[in-house]
Simulated assay, not measured.
Amino acid sequence: MTEIIEQAVRDILTACTPRKVILYAEKRTMATDKLKAFSLCVILPDDADARAVRTHLHLAITVDVPVSLSVYTIGEWDDLISDKTSYAAWIARKGRVIYDQTA
């Protein structure tokens, strides 16, 4: 994991208390393999307001590359991953957990 992604995770952990953070996409330049953008999924406790936290996280992340965020509560996540055709289920299959509060 690159320093840029690690910094984004540190920013997220400062801004909220996620249960999990999943890295599910990285875009890199062909010539230099330099990171150009990446996507994270943040799973929050059920009592969190995922929409409000998502907005707050976009402002809190300090890295210089674009970051796409998908933010769900545990309940939303559990419901969505049970549908194998959902975007969340795809993230669960293809992504890599890079922070797990329960681990």
Rank of each mutant, 00 (worst) to 15 (best):
T55V: 15
G95T: 04
A37P: 00
V65A: 09
C16M: 02
V9E: 06
I74L: 12
E26K: 14
R93I: 05
T14V: 08
R19F: 07
A8R: 03
L59I: 00
V71W: 09
C41S: 13
H56N: 13
C41K: 08
L23A: 12
I12E: 03
R10T: 09
T73Q: 08
V63P: 05
V53E: 14
I4H: 05
A31I: 00
P45R: 13
F38T: 07
T32P: 00
L69N: 02
A48Y: 15
Y24F: 15
I43H: 03
I22E: 01
K94F: 01
T17R: 13
A15Q: 08
L23R: 07
E76Y: 01
R10M: 10
A89W: 09
S70Y: 11
K36D: 06
M30A: 12
L80D: 12
E3N: 13
V65E: 11
P66W: 15
S68V: 09
H56V: 05
T32Q: 04
R96M: 09
G75P: 01
C41V: 02
D49H: 10
Y99D: 08
K20H: 11
T62V: 04
V71E: 07
M1E: 07
Y87P: 00
V97C: 11
V53M: 08
I91W: 00
V97E: 12
L44H: 08
D78Q: 15
D11L: 10
T62Q: 14
R93G: 00
A52V: 11
I91E: 00
C16V: 15
K34E: 15
K34H: 10
R28H: 09
I12H: 00
S70E: 15
I22S: 00
H58N: 15
A31C: 00
T55A: 14
A103N: 07
S82T: 01
L44Q: 10
K27I: 08
A92K: 14
K94G: 02
L13Q: 11
A8P: 01
R28V: 11
T17F: 04
T2Q: 08
T85Q: 11
Y99G: 09
A89Y: 06
A31F: 01
P66Q: 14
I81G: 01
S68K: 12
E76L: 03
T17W: 02
D47W: 10
V65Q: 06
W90G: 02
S86F: 02
L40M: 06
R93Y: 10
T85D: 14
Y87V: 05
D11G: 09
I4E: 14
D64L: 14
H58G: 15
R93H: 05
L40W: 05
V53C: 09
D33A: 12
D78L: 08
A103R: 12
Y99F: 15
E3C: 01
